[in-house]
Structure formats: structure tokens, C-alpha cells
Simulated assay, not measured.
Amino acid sequence: MNTPVTTIDLLRHGEPAGGPRFRGTVDDPLSETGWMQMRAATADGQWDRVVCSPLRRCREFAEELALQRGLDCRVEVDFREISFGLWEGLTAAQVEANCGEALARFWQDPVACPPPRGEPVADFSARVEGAWQRLIADARGQRVLVVAHGGTIAMLLRGVLGMPLSHSWRVRMGYAGQARLRLDHTPYGLLTALLRLDPGV
């Protein structure tokens, strides 16, 4: 018996303007390099629809790609990046200089030691998972491109790989990094396989 198969490509945004920094809710656009990275990453892809984060570094490219290919593009607000609270907009060196111990604790255990006034990782996980379940239900049997963030993709892959929440940040995706998931909708439940992982640059 044939069962529906959904293919979901997860694509992290390219390099944003302003360089590397804690950029959760900070809404910078892509740099020129970032645009080139994204166009190269999607040159050969074939999809039925595009889903993206509402933040500019994801949305503007996703909308351009969808327009060029005549695809529907849906903005999923719950695929936005985690908020880094008081660290938003700061470089790692700036945070290290002022909050070195807190930063070390965050990388070691982000669940127990979130950034000050940042979004708790458990809350981030719950909203990303809710958006993921809505996508699965809505895109059954389709090929979908999801343009999102390093943290969002790490959270999705953590769930697929069965990693504990405290290990979420061990999944690293570089700019324009990609992962392909195959979802088989069987009579016995949903079977998910990681088919490809390209960590990007």
C-alpha cells in the first residue's frame, strides 16, 4: 500500500547585514553575501510551497523565491528565532566581556541558564513544535521549503533525532545550511528520516 510522503527542506537564512551577533528578534536584512548564499542554495530545488519566519533575513528571500517560481509563501510567526533578551544585538565578544560566566552557563545548559530576560528554551521549543505540527498536517504529501533560523532548525532537528532539550545548541547550522527530512505517513504513525545535512558556511 502506498503511503503519502512529505519532504521538508529546512534552510537557514544567509549572512545578515551587521555581521555575527546575538540576533534573535533583531530584524536585520540579509547582506549582499547572504542573498548570494541563499540563491546558490536554492538554485536546483523543487518545491510545492514555501514557509518562512516573519523576520526579514528569512522572509524577504522566501517571498522573492516564491514569486519567481509561482509558489505560495506562508509566514509562520512561530518559526521566528529565540529571543536572547538583554544580549540582543550584541556580539559574542561583547557578551563575553560583560557576562562571561552567564554566557558559559548558557552554552553548557541553555534550559537552566537562559540569557537575562530571554525566552526560555522550553517555551521556544513548544512554539516551534506547535508550528511544526501544523505544517505537517497542512502539507501532507508535498515538498516544502522552510526558511528559518539556526535556533529554529536546531530545535526541529533535536526533536527528530531524539536529543534532550538541554542539547539543543549542539546542532549547529551555518549560513544557508540545509537539512532534508522525509516524513512517511504510515498506518502505524509518522516515520521521520533525516536524509541530508549540509551545515552551510
Rank of each mutant, 00 (worst) to 15 (best):
M36K: 07
L103H: 15
W35C: 03
A41Y: 13
R80V: 01
V111S: 06
G89D: 06
L67K: 14
P110R: 00
A41G: 11
R117G: 02
F61M: 04
E63T: 11
C52D: 01
A102V: 01
S53P: 07
Q108M: 13
S83R: 03
E63G: 06
G70F: 08
L86N: 12
L55I: 07
A122Q: 15
F84W: 08
C58Q: 03
A97K: 13
D123L: 12
C58T: 01
F84E: 03
C73E: 03
V121L: 14
P54N: 06
A43I: 09
W47L: 04
E81A: 03
C113Q: 04
D72P: 05
R59P: 02
A40H: 06
E119S: 06
W107Y: 15
S31P: 09
M36N: 10
C113N: 11
T42K: 03
C58P: 02
C52E: 01
G70N: 04
L103R: 15
E76A: 11
G89Q: 03
P114S: 11
S83E: 03
G118P: 00
N98D: 13
G34N: 10
V51L: 15
C113K: 02
E64N: 08
E76Q: 04
S53I: 07
A43T: 06
S31C: 12
G100L: 10
P110N: 06
E64A: 09
E76T: 00
R74E: 10
S125N: 15
G89C: 07
Q46Y: 08
R39Y: 11
P120R: 01
L71Y: 11
L65P: 08
Q108Y: 13
Q94M: 10
V50A: 02
G45W: 04
W87H: 06
V95R: 02
V51H: 08
A112F: 09
G34M: 11
G118W: 07
I82V: 15
W47E: 01
V121A: 10
E96W: 04
F61G: 00
G89L: 05
I82F: 15
P116M: 13
S83M: 07
D78S: 12
S53C: 12
